[in-house]
C-alpha cells in the first residue's frame, strides 16, 4: 500500500505499509482522526454580477407568471386565466372522429375491434341491436341494459351501465361510429334525435330485453325529430 492512497492526504502521518504501524500509542488509537484535514472553511470568491442579474431575471419571470396565471385569487377562481374559457370550447368535430374518441369508454368491455368478449360482453360488430332500430339503440345505451340478451346468435347475461352522463352530441357520435365501423353500415344519428329519446325515456331505469322490446314497439310521441334542441336535459346543459 503506497502513501498516495489518500482519503485525507496528510503526509505527516501517512504510514507506508500496513505492517508499519508506528509504535506511538496515541497514533494507533486515533489514526483516523489524526490523518484528516482541518474542519472546512469558507472561501471568499465574489459572486459574478452577471449571475446576480440572472437571478433577478428569474425573479421577474416569477412575478410575471404569478401576475398572468393566478386567476381571480379566490376559492372558486379555478381557471388560471380569465380567458381560459374561450380556449377550452372544443372546435366542432366530425361525428366519426368524436365517436371514436367517446368509444374509448366502451372499449373496456366491447373491445377495440367491436367483437366483445365471449360469454361476458356482446359484440357490436354485426349486432342486430346496433344495426336495427335507432330509437331502441339510443334508449338502450342511454339507460343501460341487463338480463339475458341474444346478440348475433349468442346469449349474454350481464349488465351494462347507463350512459346518460354523456351529452347528446357524444351519444349521437358514438352510436354513429358503432353503426359504421368493423363492417357495420347504417345511417347516422343526430343529436336532436338522441335528445328526444332521452326526454322520452326520462326516469326509466335499466332496460331488460323484454321491456326494451316493448318500448321499441310503442310508437314514438309525435314528431320526435322535430323536438327543439332546448329539450335537452340538465345533464346536457352542464356542458
Amino acid at each position: 500500500m503506497s502513501s498516495i492512497h489518500n482519503d485525507d492526504p496528510n503526509p505527516n502521518q501517512e504510514p507506508t505499509h500496513e505492517a508499519d504501524v508506528p509504535p506511538d500509542p496515541i497514533f494507533v488509537i486515533h489514526r483516523a482522526a489524526m490523518r484528516e484535514m482541518d474542519e472546512p472553511r469558507d472561501g471568499a470568491e465574489p459572486t459574478p454580477v452577471s449571475y446576480i442579474l440572472l437571478c433577478f431575471a428569474a425573479l421577474m419571470w416569477g412575478g410575471w407568471y404569478i401576475g398572468t396565471y393566478a386567476g381571480t385569487w379566490s376559492a372558486d377562481g379555478l381557471a388560471e386565466r380569465a380567458t381560459a374559457g374561450a380556449a377550452i370550447t372544443a372546435p366542432a368535430q366530425n361525428p366519426m372522429e368524436l365517436g371514436k374518441e367517446v368509444f374509448g369508454v366502451c372499449v373496456q368491455c366491447h373491445q377495440e375491434n367491436g367483437r366483445g368478449v365471449p360469454e361476458n360482453y356482446p359484440p357490436l360488430a354485426g349486432s342486430e341491436y346496433v344495426l336495427g332500430d335507432k330509437r331502441k339503440l339510443a334508449a338502450l345505451v342511454l339507460r343501460g341494459l341487463g338480463g339475458d340478451v341474444t346478440v348475433a346468435g349468442k346469449h349474454f347475461n350481464s349488465q351494462m351501465p347507463a350512459w346518460d352522463n354523456r351529452d347528446d352530441e357524444e351519444i349521437a357520435a358514438v352510436l354513429t361510429y358503432i353503426r359504421n365501423s368493423w363492417g357495420n353500415k347504417a345511417d347516422p344519428l343526430s343529436k336532436e334525435f338522441v335528445a328526444a329519446v332521452r326526454k322520452e325515456t326520462e326516469g326509466k331505469g335499466e332496460w331488460r330485453p323484454a321491456s326494451l322490446d316493448a318500448f321499441a314497439a310503442t310508437p314514438p310521441p309525435a314528431a320526435p325529430v322535430a323536438a327543439p334542441p332546448t329539450a335537452a336535459t340538465p345533464q346536457a346543459q352542464t356542458k
Binding site: G43, A44, E45, P46
Partner: peptide
C-alpha cells in the same frame, strides 16, 4: 455535501457569498 467535499479534498468551499445566496433562496 458542504462538509464532506471541502473536508476530504482539504480546500475551502469556493465562495461564502454563493453559500449565502444558495441557503436563503
Amino acid at each position: 455535501a458542504y462538509y464532506l467535499i471541502p473536508k476530504v479534498i482539504g480546500k475551502p468551499i469556493h465562495s461564502y457569498h454563493l453559500s449565502l445566496l444558495g441557503f436563503w433562496s
